[in-house]
Design a protein around this nucleic acid. Structure first.
Lengths: 153, 153
DNA sequence: TATTGTTATACTCTATAACTATA
DNA sequence: TATAGTTATAGAGTATAACAATA
């Protein structure tokens, strides 16, 4: 399989994707830094701005150990961006939720992500559709949309 | 500028790119872990497998402070994957280079990166060309190819 | 017993500042 | 004096193991 590994065209596309990945991260870290957040903190805040989430579930979404989430939430909570709430249904679980200020920060963070807009603005709607379709096929198309549905675990 | 920010098509493309970025990183970390390397170590080893490089330059390419490179190279050197050589031209600089085993590891690492091949294999040559052109335009086309030419500093 | 979140510990990456040896 | 690499230090993310509270 994959006779294409050394094919120049494939290599160039791979290289371009690498560039996209690199630029995406630069911009993400930059935007986070503007709010004095680390990448991990910004990522978690973004999650919580979508939906209050139990610690365990945050760990799954971050693909890290639950013990790490404690510290990240601690730091966000110390800055008033997040709060821990008890789960009425199960007294073992704690649900982390963005505060009002947390939501404001998450909004600002999202707006600061130039990458999401500027480069794509170069492309016409038709071209964006083409890009979308190619990316979909590249990713196998089996994209579970938002909620993540704990397809992990 | 950017009236497209809330346009569903653009949002979907942005989301797809986010998925590409996430998958790319997962695979990278996974491949590195298979060789008991951290992401940073794998990245540096990859660099050095291309070309022996002075400490300062490694820092620029990693976009981190030079002091951090010392530790990363220390750990790679302790495992026999990298060695430090003096620069005949300037006795202040040290040049890090991959050892034979370092080159072998870098090769294995590269081969382990399925992402580079599998997903692209789904696309026909014509589609890959289209994807290449779209990505090029998206990235502004001003891509300085490999060598990095210390376009930073 | 099993699970949730936490604590304790250790390692790596990161930035900052001060140091050394060259230049 | 300026630069290359290092050391020292501190903060953050990470994994592992052990623990309390709850299920």
């Amino acid at each position: 399989m994959s006779t294409s590994r050394t094919d120049p065209l494939t290599l160039e596309v791979v290289d371009l994707i690498g560039t996209v990945v690199a630029r995406y991260h630069e911009e993400y870290e930059e935007a986070a830094a503007r709010y004095r957040l680390t990448g991990a903190q910004a990522r978690v805040l973004g999650l919580l701005a979508m939906e209050p989430t139990a610690m365990r579930r945050i760990a799954r979404q971050l693909k890290c150990e639950p013990s790490n989430v404690t510290g990240i939430i601690d730091r966000l909570e110390a800055r008033g961006l997040v709060e821990r709430r008890p789960d009425p249904a199960d007294r073992r679980v704690k649900i982390a939720a963005a505060t009002e200020e947390g939501h404001r920060t998450a909004r600002g963070l999202r707006d600061a992500l130039h990458f999401a807009r500027e480069p794509l603005a170069e492309l016409s709607p038709q071209e964006r559709r083409t890009l979308r379709d190619l990316l979909r096929r590249m990713l196998g198309d089996v994209r579970v949309v938002p909620g993540d549905v704990q397809a992990d675990a």
